[in-house]
């Protein structure tokens, strides 16, 4: 069962083409890394897929009524906004909004445990450090308990251990039969944990496939202006950027 199907998605900002004719299908068991330089159109593509901004083309998510869409897909925006001093537990429970707050399956405690937040459930979310707040917001998206998760730079600003843990959680979600699409700047983590990479450059999808097939010297030079060493070990790809080519 396809969880997200995009057909010829194009987004214009004024006259500028920000996302240019992108078609993608995402299936269960996929952890998709959306990578590309700043301004490549990663955020815009995800927001268009959700129908949060005007677009041309077709997306299966944006066609759904708002509540049905919120039960099919969780969205973790890049801006980490917590307006009021609510507790971490209340914040994570906001993920149950599409179900009118009901949580029969215990998704909220599960999300708290998964993100290692049990100890701070009663603390005020605005009193947390930036990284803790980011983890609480990820837990909110997990509590929505959807087949698909779209996350915009979810690991930016986390400490190295928390970054790896979060990537592992997303990989686990994919393993359970869900799918995750996350924009990620750290190519090393993306290459090691994602099952598939979508590479965006200037609004176009320039490569799509498993990390070891997609990441090569020519593409890194062309899209990122990077020189890198790419190796392997038993757990996956080892990626180390060495310098810039331009």
């Amino acid at each position: 069962m396809t969880l997200l199907s995009l057909r010829n998605i194009t987004v214009l900002r004024g006259r500028r083409v920000v996302v240019d004719d992108i078609s993608v299908d995402v299936e269960p068991h996929e952890f998709v890394g959306l990578i590309g330089p700043n301004g490549a159109g990663k955020t815009t593509l995800m927001r268009a897929a959700l129908g949060l901004l005007p677009y041309r083309g077709q997306t299966t998510l944006a066609r759904m009524p708002p509540v049905a869409r919120a039960r099919a897909c969780a969205w973790l925006p890049q801006a980490r906004e917590v307006a009021w001093a609510i507790t971490v537990a209340d914040l994570v429970a906001l993920g149950r909004t599409p179900w009118d707050g009901h949580d029969p399956g215990g998704a909220v405690p599960r999300a708290l445990a998964r993100m290692g937040l049990e100890g701070m459930a009663l603390r005020s979310a605005t009193a947390l450090s930036g990284g803790e707040q980011a983890r609480a917001l990820i837990a909110r998206a997990l509590a929505q308990d959807t087949p698909l998760l779209l996350a915009d730079e979810p690991i930016a600003g986390l400490d190295p251990a928390a970054q790896i843990r979060t990537m592992q959680i997303f990989a686990d979600l994919a393993h359970e039969g869900r799918a995750v699409i996350a924009s990620i700047h750290d190519l090393g983590l993306a290459a090691r944990h994602c099952t598939r990479l979508l590479i965006l450059s200037e609004g176009r999808l320039v490569a799509d496939g498993p990390p070891d097939q997609v990441l090569d010297a020519a593409l890194l030079d062309r899209v990122f202006g990077l020189r890198a060493r790419i190796g392997r070990d038993k757990d996956g790809i080892l990626f180390q950027a060495l310098g810039v080519t331009r």
Partner: peptide
């Protein structure tokens, strides 16, 4: 419920239905 969801910003609230 909508005002609660808005605690996380307009984008997140809209995506929560």
């Amino acid at each position: 419920r909508g005002l609660d969801a808005l605690t996380l910003g307009e984008d997140a609230a809209e995506a929560m239905g």
